[in-house]
Design a protein around this nucleic acid. Structure first.
Lengths: 221, 221
DNA sequence: ACCTGAACACCGTTCAAGT
DNA sequence: ACCTGAACACCGTTCAAGT
């Protein structure tokens, strides 16, 4: 007789909640309502338990965020790689970028201390291999990885700010200051480019910008 | 008889608090205790008034943060500029970067929607002028400004994460994952660079990295 | 072993009242 | 006009108790 027709032999109550269930609920909440709406109380309500039940499965709120971050990283589709190393690197980073763009809340979590679980390592491994294939030394490969990560996270952050602005969120911002205010007497050069600003930011030029960055770091053939 | 020997003729109580006083207290708190410690209640305690007195001078907490951000931006020392446009741009951005590095909390505030007051515009104006002097078109100048801002904010964010790690803050992170975990069987390329990682991140290579980025964006002579 | 309910020590902010 | 005190509607988290 198969074991699972019996009640499990381990002692105590059977778990009604699982960590996966909690992570899934948190992911859904973040996606639909944003990071401000992610409270332990909201998560517990969404899985139909008391707030404290969550703490059986997750250390604290920060831990939960790391779990969610790793969860979405694990679901980034792994792209088929082109032949040239430079094109490989761009494709790999673009996949990461696209995923983090979808989850607008993620960059805010990363900003509070760039937490990342092991799921992203598959991508990092391929990026470093591509660098090596292009003839970069280990030090150069490490530097490239580091610099591009910095650029990527900054891009996400600024792009999110732009989206928020487009949706009409109020308040001053770097962006607003740059293309609304510029007093032509005090800031003639800024006033001159302010009309181009909109079109620069309207579309996301991550791929092209990343290409320029890579070209500055190394000569790829 | 000079007017100010009399009690002011405007009606009602004399203000005991000023906006400047509040912004100064908030700046000090942020610098010494970090962004988590900045509460309206803490600010009010530090200026010796009730929490609600603050709201007479500041709309809300977000507004206060923008004011502080602009305050520190206004105190960035304006550098003497070298002759070459490329060197000018690097010097200007480095001044901004250095200031924001000192105020580690700032990047977290920027991350929540890159707020910036008008005080930064002096720098932006000079950066765009330098781009134009180097022969860049208006569109190219705008793009360069945009891309470098993205890179700068990302650099600040990652560098802060590194500092936090060095100070022994717990929890997983992108950084930790990259130079502690890498399983040599599954991630051989990562394992190979992990020893270089420490030295790459130990010192801040913002200037050099920015140089590479500029070179990728444009040919400067 | 897992879950609950009440409670603690906080927040930002509103409101009515004092001077 | 400026400030205060009490209160509201929230947080994350601890603790003691239930099953």
């Amino acid at each position: 007789m198969p074991a699972r027709t019996k009640t499990p032999t381990r002692r105590g109550r059977r778990p009604r909640l699982s960590r996966d269930q909690i992570v899934e609920a948190a992911t859904a909440l973040l996606l639909s309502e944003g990071v401000a709406a992610l409270t332990i109380r909201a998560v517990s309500a969404s899985v139909g338990s008391s707030p404290m039940a969550v703490y059986r499965h997750v250390e604290d709120k920060e831990h939960l965020l790391v779990l969610v971050l790793d969860h979405i990283a694990s679901e980034i589709p792994k792209p088929r790689l082109p032949k040239q190393p430079r094109a490989q690197i761009i494709k790999l980073w673009s996949a990461i970028y696209a995923c983090l763009t979808e989850h607008a809340w993620a960059v805010e979590v990363l900003a509070a201390g760039d937490k990342m679980g092991p799921s992203i390592l598959w991508f990092m491994e391929r990026i470093v291999r591509a660098s090596r294939d292009a003839g970069l030394s280990e030090t150069e490969s490490a530097r490239t990885l580091d610099v591009v990560w910095r650029f990527t996270i900054g891009s996400l952050l600024v792009q999110r700010g732009h989206s928020a602005l487009a949706e009409g969120s109020p308040g001053p911002s770097m962006q607003r200051a740059l293309y609304e205010n510029p007093d032509a007497d005090e800031f003639p050069a800024l006033a001159a480019i302010s009309s181009r600003w909109e079109s620069i930011r309207a579309r996301d030029h991550y791929r092209a910008n990343l290409g320029a960055l890579l070209d500055g770091l190394h000569t790829w053939d």
